[in-house]
């Protein structure tokens, strides 16, 4: 996974995306706040949805409890 390293740690780009998700946001807003290409954010958010670090409600991505605690690590 591009968001989780082979050591099981969050990658820098994943951390940027999660940090950009303090409030529920679209992928475009995350890309703008994290200064990452939109394609990368879409792919990363998909991975983090599968890992239950983020959730999708009404087309807005938000942090799950796991996502919040992952950011604190």
């Amino acid at each position: 996974m591009a968001c989780i390293s082979s050591k099981g740690e969050m990658t820098e780009s994943a951390r940027k995306m999660l940090t950009a998700l303090e409030a529920p946001s679209t992928a475009e807003e995350v890309a703008s706040r994290a200064s990452l290409p939109l394609f990368r954010v879409r792919a990363g958010l998909r991975e983090m949805l599968a890992a239950e670090l983020v959730e999708l409600k009404d087309d807005l991505y938000g942090l799950t409890a796991s996502g919040r605690s992952a950011l604190l690590r």
Binding site: M1, L38, F39, R40, R42, A43, G44, R46, E47
Partner: peptide, 13 residues
């Protein structure tokens, strides 16, 4: 090299 990507991820670009 940037992870698993779909062509649709580029939609709009």
């Amino acid at each position: 090299t940037h992870g698993r990507i779909r062509l649709e991820d580029f939609r709009g670009s």
